[in-house]
Design a protein around this nucleic acid. Sequence first.
DNA 1: CATGTTGCTGCCGTTTCGGCAACAGCTATA
DNA 2: TATAGCTGTTGCCGAAACGGCAGCAACATG
Lengths: 312, 312
Amino acid sequence: MRFHSPAIQYFHAVRRTGSIRAAARVLNVASSAVSRQILKLEQEVGSPLFERTARGLTLTTVGEMLARHVMNVLQDLDRFRSDVASLSGTWHGTVSIACIESLTESVLPDLIASHRGRARRVSFTTEVMGSSDVLEALSRGEADIGIAIALRHPQDLRQVALKRFRLGAVVAREHPLARRKTVTLEQCLAFPLINALPELSIYHLLQPLIAQLPETPEPAIQANSIDLMRELAARGVGVAFQTQLGIGRLSRDSQLVFLPLDNAGSPVWSDLGIYVRAERTLPAYTESFLQELVRELGERERRESAGYPQVG
Amino acid sequence: MRFHSPAIQYFHAVRRTGSIRAAARVLNVASSAVSRQILKLEQEVGSPLFERTARGLTLTTVGEMLARHVMNVLQDLDRFRSDVASLSGTWHGTVSIACIESLTESVLPDLIASHRGRARRVSFTTEVMGSSDVLEALSRGEADIGIAIALRHPQDLRQVALKRFRLGAVVAREHPLARRKTVTLEQCLAFPLINALPELSIYHLLQPLIAQLPETPEPAIQANSIDLMRELAARGVGVAFQTQLGIGRLSRDSQLVFLPLDNAGSPVWSDLGIYVRAERTLPAYTESFLQELVRELGERERRESAGYPQVG
DNA sequence: CATGTTGCTGCCGTTTCGGCAACAGCTATA
DNA sequence: TATAGCTGTTGCCGAAACGGCAGCAACATG
């Protein structure tokens, strides 16, 4: 099913690999063939699509416009294929997810496992990265669904849903703070802090609160891994900060306690956004998973707010 | 700038014309070439795209799916072209509008004239039809922007805006009713009625009110032309019914008087919807006109509600 | 300076495309 | 019932496009 001109596909491969020869390797054709198709394209558009540097090709402004068009075409072709396939009963394809780390502990594995229980022909590709990288991967067409801290997102993305979760302190069961219902940042200062590095969004959520303190606390540990911070907290090393999403299993085993942060009487929110390319209709199997994802996160948001009623 | 495989374009032409030979005439190629491309497409998809009848081709279910994809591709190609063109300063293209008759008297001519005053390289194609035909034309990709009475619209269309206008009686300046501020349907019954035929949406707006009357009035004149009904009213033949949108000029000349209908204390609304294909990003010049259209209709809605405060 | 990389370009065989003419199937008209 | 007109399809053949191979110059890296 390849009814689009080779130029389209070659262009797409060159854009992704950043080099004609690399694209040729991926496409299993001679590099000369790729080169010629690109030159032909540029002649038809009437303007160069790439800037040639010594070690590869970079998109020009016009090239980026064409890239957008080509991405729309190829993604819609995917959807068409899935539509035809679902007509004959077969539901198969790959859902590609880009998300931040906090989803990997419980939300995503639960969802994927249950989804694959029902639709075994649907496979998954998930890649963990920072929030801004999630948006970029989505824009570049490298993922179908993105989950990230809700930043201001570019126009070519659509925010499917926005769920808020309370940021809280995470401590071991035996920790002195563990018996509280909520906790303030000041109360945490009496203990060693396990802080996020600036590359994690948690850092930017806590930073304004820390700046308000009379003196800047010195963290015992700084890390860029939610996983690591959680495990450190479980071992009683100190107080870590994250949302309840990231500590599902250890919380069930009662090794960890989650204490919602109370900032001068009001909660500290971490907004989680679910994103999708705006100029796109998703294949049926992707749309189906997306719906479940939104529902599940909504469910967790609801459960959390029921368990910890708002302070302010 | 034709970097899509000929099969795509041939398929599109065949779908529109409903015949291979007719498509070949439009495309200026031999019919055999078109036939072969269609056969090749069907082989690649693995399923027939058309049903062959004695006098042409009709889309199958799979064919309709492909038609949707092809439409998305070609419309997005248009947008890409306009993006490239606008980069080099030139703004040109054609905005295709499908709308109901009530817009032709004042809204559309005013807007198009003013828009062309600023952007002379943008041309327009407007076609007047019934509300449901507007939606169909849009779905088939035969128009960019659709304006129709707001029915329940299919999923492949997006309602950009919804503006409500009061339905009212239209009478000549010398008419006995002309000095009133509002009017009820019963008050109109004393005079000859100029009614819309069922093919006009006004008919369906008035029908429920007429059904509530103790006895069904017999209209003096029935017509399917807003224009004709308005001109008849201007000549004092009777009472016509429409929104204020359709009587702009004659109202300015004070030949016609618009009396909002008062149905048991509440207004009778005519909802006007502005529609666009959902799976589509409009070219810049089209989007620009669309914005002006929405703004203008919003302005008229505002002016009207200021001039005739709600009754109920 | 040598080596490896980049994109580009003749040359040439293969594939695809498109035009012409003829064919079979159906419909409407005389 | 015969005929004329329409439909889509197919064999044949020339033209255009595509792709592979080998070699080129330009640049980066060691």
